[in-house]
Design a protein around this nucleic acid. Structure first.
Length: 733
DNA sequence: GCATAGATCTTTTTT
DNA sequence: AGATCTATGC
């Protein structure tokens, strides 16, 4: 109770500083959400500010929901009109109301990456660009990054000098045009077009500037240029802008997040006040020290160090396993032991990994140990094929111009309308000047361009859409969706293909219908458009329920903003974490370090860092201990070694029964050419080389077959040696 | 128009 | 290694 409401001095200062620009540098676990919610409460209760004048923006629906809940807890129901939302839903809302000023319809569709890629692929084909070089995903990434910087097609074209970029600019232009004709915006458009709207339409900008007197932004380190512009446009001219963030937790620069937004806030707003929140209320000193040691490898960070009043707690545990499978078994087994001993419940444990692909071995281990688990991320619910298929029908009813939705389902379930027929119909509709769906409803015109069999199929398809449109106002959302699912007979379709997957797919369709019904129940005034909007903007973490009695597994990125008593960070191997692509580039490596910092500071009581000696990844077996482990303060952790070796002469190492050995226990031979043993080589090891004698490993670089060591020998010589050819012996650590 | 076999890519992270 | 996309033949 005390902890919830009593604020320390800097927190208090942050809460009470309401006028002018304010930067709150909030370290992990420093009570950031408490400060934001209390600040909102302070504005309303102490200063009598109307809730409608306050805007708080976050990145996830979950964070927004949590913030809203906690403000209500403080103020009761006196929060009507308070705007707490994500960047995307705020913009979606603004564009529903005022997008017509830019020519967008009220019922616009929101395209996800998949939809966008589909459209770009079509444009690439239309422009006759060779598919070999012009890959939709790559072009989309370029376009998306342009939109993050608020560069429209013409602005972007000015920055293009090479052939590929110039062609991308052409595709970009066509793509924007195609989106516009489809009455659609992609996710980046939501932000960029809102910025355009506020920049160019004076009365709309004036309205929002007057409405939002106090603006707050959470996770400011993750904002991109477009979001920065948006925030600035909304908070000007009063400039009561409060941003909260932590440059050490910036882990989305690859998505356009510009760390300069936070690093240069004080230059940008010269009158800005800065408050540092450095007292951590979450983790033990050992955990904080380790996290700090790794992130300190970075330059160009705001200097701050978390401290805590908490007792030291247990040391971090570093676990070395034989393989990825063994790693999973060991960790899942440990969790089961925790549960059986009553130490920690399943929902107090989280398994974190760098890439979604790693979840697989843990899922299998969970099944072997028969423990319940919740997987967050991976293929998102609303992205699943069967769910998107159902939603495409609904979207078409709302927005008949949506060409991507139409193409998605015109032949699903199969009605014999393939590429050729679709091509004919599209050409005819274009000539005719009608949107494709409207053209399809003109029976005679259709019969003119395609076979009578195809025309019949088209008529059937149109009948479904018209029937659905007719029932829209009669049925409530849940019933309407149920009817839609029955009408297109999608469940029968699903049952007839792949039997191993069909049940899950049918379940997903049922869950979608149930979700729609629930949505309608919670929001009685909600329209089908509202439901589709939320389906487009919700993420998997948003759907995660922390109270379920199950182990949570997710990527390090997804874990941002969450906390758990017990955290396992897995796959700490060079090439995986840090990721191979990041190892050559110091900026990307810095981001991996921050990701490690984010991951480890999720832990309240116990932190486990795990790596495997061999891991099957993408065909090959590559492995070497992550450099991050070498950067941990020596007294903050203990090591559990779960592999053992027998020395069988040169090149022969055999796996013994699993046992716990002390760190660097005995000499271990290194077989020639066995690149999968690189996990055991680390800086600081003493080795014996057949020619150069005894030496000390200074640094280890690369991984797999390319693994090299820099070794200083007794003779004083320093040599760089390719490990797989060296055939040296390890004497110890 | 569709089924099958072969080719290719994936595995970085997501609002 | 497995999923997904493409080309080919029916």
């Amino acid at each position: 109770m005390d902890r919830e409401n009593k604020l320390n001095a800097p927190q208090q200062e942050a809460v009470e500083t309401v006028d002018g620009p304010l930067l709150i540098l909030a370290g992990a676990g420093s009570g950031k959400t408490r400060v934001i919610t209390q600040r909102v409460a302070h504005l309303i209760r102490e200063l009598g500010i109307s809730p409608e004048s306050i805007l708080a923006v976050t990145f996830t629906n979950k964070a927004a929901g949590e913030m809203k809940r906690r403000v209500e807890e403080l103020l009761g129901e006196n929060t009507a009109g308070l705007q707490v939302s994500t960047f995307h839903s705020l913009c979606a809302r603004i564009l529903r109301g005022y997008g017509d000023r830019l020519g967008y319809p009220r019922n616009y569709s929101i395209y996800d990456e998949q939809d966008s890629r589909h459209l770009i692929k079509k444009i690439i084909a239309e422009l006759n660009l060779p598919a070999r070089q012009f890959i939709p995903g790559v072009m989309l990434a370029r376009i998306s990054s342009a939109k993050d910087r608020v560069l429209g097609p013409e602005d972007y074209a000015k920055t293009c000098h090479d052939h590929f970029s110039k062609e991308t600019a052409r595709v970009y232009e066509r793509y924007q045009q195609a989106l516009f004709e489809a009455g659609a915006l992609d996710l980046d458009d939501l932000i960029m077009q809102t910025v355009c709207l506020l920049q160019t339409v004076d009365d709309v900008r004036d309205y929002f500037q007057q409405r939002f007197v106090y603006v707050m932004v959470d996770e400011y380190q993750d904002t991109n240029f477009a979001q920065y512009r948006l925030v600035k446009l909304l908070s000007d001219p009063q400039g009561n802008l409060c941003v909260v963030g932590d440059d050490d937790q910036s882990i989305y620069t690859w998505r356009g997040a510009d760390i300069r937004n936070i690093l240069e806030f004080e230059d940008d707003f010269p009158k800005a006040k800065v408050v540092l929140l450095e007292q951590n209320y979450r983790s033990t000193p050992n955990i904080l020290d380790a996290a700090y040691a790794v992130v300190c490898g970075n330059f160009r960070r705001k200097d701050k160090k978390l401290w805590t009043r908490q007792p030291e707690g247990e040391k971090i545990t570093v676990i070395l396993s034989e393989s990825d499978t063994a790693e999973a078994d060991l960790i899942v087994g440990r969790i089961k032991t925790f549960q059986e001993n009553g130490q920690y419940g399943l929902n107090e444990c989280v398994i974190l990994y760098r890439t979604n692909a790693q979840s697989r071995s843990f899922e299998e281990a969970m099944r072997r140990f028969s423990l319940p688990y919740v997987l967050v991320g991976g293929v998102k619910f609303f992205q699943r094929k069967e769910v998107k298929d159902v939603l495409a029908y609904a979207t078409l009813v709302v927005n008949p111009h949506d060409i991507v939705a139409l193409r998605r389902v015109i032949n699903y379930p199969k009605r014999g309308l393939g590429q050729t027929t679709l091509g004919k119909l599209e050409t005819a509709a274009e000539k005719n000047g009608h949107p494709l769906l409207h053209f399809l409803a003109e029976g005679e015109a259709v019969a003119h361009v395609v076979s009578s069999r195809a025309a019949k199929s088209v008529a059937k398809f149109i009948a479904i859409i018209e029937e659905l449109s007719g029932l829209r106002d009669e049925k409530n959302l849940g019933d309407w969706m149920r009817f839609l699912v029955e009408r297109i007979r999608i469940k029968n379709e699903l049952q007839s293909d792949d039997p191993t997957q069909s049940q899950t797919r049918v379940d997903n369709v049922d869950e979608l219908v149930a979700g729609a019904a629930e949505f309608a129940m919670i929001n009685p005034d909600a329209t089908l458009e509202d439901f589709l909007e939320q389906a487009a903007l919700i993420t998997d973490v948003d759907r995660w329920e922390p109270d379920t009695d199950a182990v949570t597994m997710m990527t390090l990125h997804s874990a941002k903003g969450l906390e758990f008593p017990v955290v396992f960070i897995t796959g700490l191997e060079e090439g995986l974490f840090p990721l191979a692509q990041a190892m050559q580039d110091s900026d990307r490596l810095a981001e991996e370090r921050r990701l490690f910092y984010v991951g480890s500071t999720r832990a309240k009581k116990r932190l486990y860092l795990s790596y495997a000696r061999t891991r099957r990844r993408f065909g090959e077996t590559v492995n070497m201990k992550s450099r991050f482990l070498a950067e941990l303060p020596g007294d903050s952790y203990v090591t559990e070694n779960h592999i053992g070796y027998d020395r069988l002469g040169p090149g022969g190492l055999s796996y013994q029964r699993r046992r716990v050995a002390r760190r660097g226990a005995r000499p271990v031979g290194l077989p020639q050419g066995a690149n999968d043993l690189s996990a055991i080589l680390q800086a600081g090891m003493r080795i014996l080389h057949p020619r150069f004698g005894e030496g000390l490993i200074e640094t280890v670089r690369g991984y797999g077959a390319g693994l090299t060591c820099e070794i200083s020998f007794k003779s004083g010589e320093v040599k760089t040696i390719v490990a797989r050819y060296a055939n040296f012996e390890i004497l110890g650590v």
